[in-house]
């Protein structure tokens, strides 16, 4: 589902954030992307959904090479991805309902279908009573759940989640993990950046560990 070949990435004025990274995440796999803060987890995910461009190497997502794709083709590919951003990326002036419905709205899905799917998704993350609120009125944890709902509302084939439990207490984190496990059991591939050791120990999965711009062991292939 996700294949990286010799990917190199550095920001202007920085040494290489990612240096010759190669790995594969198979279809249906649930994989953690770990590493200390600043290791390049977010950068790597951004490369996968092509918000950043690689300097070198190739990235295949669902068989398509995102490093050489027009904006138009890219937009079509992104419709099959569920992305949870580390900083949520919610629209502050739109309601929770509108935020979660945004990916459907930009695809031209009809109003009624949007309403049905958004409501279902918000129930899924336990926010059905907050649909008319705006993100700034919500707690960090609630915003995170809105971001998750927005990622899942498109029925993605691949979820790219950047520390989706970073703002949640232990109990809610477990709920989110269960939720991810649940959709993973339905065949959705998940690549999740995290540094929550406790959680990852409890829900042990294959880990891809980043350190000093490289994949370091243990890449214990669990799945």
């Amino acid at each position: 589902m996700v294949r990286l070949y010799n990917v190199c990435k550095s920001y202007p004025g920085n040494s290489a954030v990612l240096d010759d990274i190669s790995f594969t995440v198979a279809k249906g796999e649930f994989t953690y992307l770990t590493g200390p803060s600043g290791a390049g987890k977010s950068t790597l995910l951004q490369l996968v959904y092509a918000a950043q461009r690689v300097q070198r190497g190739q990235i295949l997502v669902n068989g398509q090479n995102v490093t050489r794709m027009t904006e138009r083709r890219l937009s079509l590919l992104r419709r099959s991805l569920g992305i949870v951003f580390q900083d949520f990326r919610l629209l502050p002036f739109r309601t929770v309902f509108e935020n979660v419905g945004l990916p459907l709205e930009v695809q031209g899905v009809g109003r009624r279908e949007i309403a049905a799917r958004v409501n279902e998704q918000l129930r899924f993350v336990g926010l059905q009573d907050k649909l008319q609120r705006r993100p700034p009125e919500l707690s960090g944890g609630e915003q995170q759940r809105v971001a998750i709902a927005r990622a899942l509302v498109v029925d993605p084939v691949l979820v790219l989640a950047d520390e989706p439990t970073g703002n949640l207490d232990a109990a809610t984190s477990r709920d989110i993990l269960k939720l991810f496990t649940h959709i993973n059991e339905q065949g959705v591939t998940i690549l999740m950046a995290s540094h929550d050791r406790l959680l990852m120990r409890r829900y042990a999965r294959r880990e891809i560990a980043l350190a000093d711009g490289r994949v370091s062991p243990p890449d214990n292939n669990l799945s």
Partner: peptide, 16 residues
């Protein structure tokens, strides 16, 4: 620009 970027990231086409 934020709104446009987010919309692009959730699959809005350049045309849209």
């Amino acid at each position: 620009r934020d709104e446009l970027e987010i919309m692009a990231l959730v699959g809005a086409s350049p045309y849209y």
